[in-house]
Amino acid sequence: SPNSSVTEIEHLTQNVLKSYRETCQLRLEDLQLLRLETFSWEEVRSYQKKSMEEMWERCACRITEAIQYVVEFAKRMGGFMELCQNDQIVLLKAGAMEVVLVRMCRAFNSENRTVFFEGKYAGPELFKSLGCNELINSIFDFAHSLCSLHFSENEIALFTALVLINSSRPWLQEKDKVERLQNNLELAFKHMLRKTHRESILAKLPPKGKLRSLCYQHMEKLRSFRQMYPIIVHAVFPPLYKELFS
């Protein structure tokens, strides 16, 4: 780029990798070690017998925890805090859940189609009482497809930075500033892939519309749940979750 020096891009790369390492919530080594810890049949049954309200609240809490780490990732990432606060909020509102969905592939075991949830690995059937089988299956399919790319931790770091810093989000006030950061992150990502001979994954990355569609489906399901249980959502759901999704 005529506007960014190699040193600037290298500095941004190191900064994103460090921010990610500090905020990845669960260490990859621990997630790998726990891969054989799957919920027993009895445990799955006990989750399936929970009320829809309880299961929704649990999942809302787990999503909120994951999002708090994404907010922290954004804050530590070079350039993000230099954006105006309107744009920080626009980018997080639109992108935090998308980043959580990408991060989920680290906690996903493609071999038996399970994901790490509340201490053990769970298949899609554990989430039955949510009443969102189609959405859950779509999320599992998405994680499965991402796993086939065999992302390294560094690749996830830069890819999720790019999911977040997206200048095409509506309502940005300083679009040019976001665009410049996005361009530098794209350079950083491509430079890293070139160095590691991994440029072939560029053509296999999920289209932006796929993540957007999963997030939209999640918000639609929340809307239906809220119509059925407005008081539960109002009284017990985490405030950050409500702020982002309702």
Binding site: V71, Q85, L92, K93, L240, E243
Partner: peptide
């Protein structure tokens, strides 16, 4: 701003 009170708060707090 009021609509995004929690996000504002999280963004304004220092790194934790």
């Amino acid at each position: 701003q009021e609509k995004h009170r929690i996000l504002h708060k999280l963004l304004q707090n220092g790194n934790s």
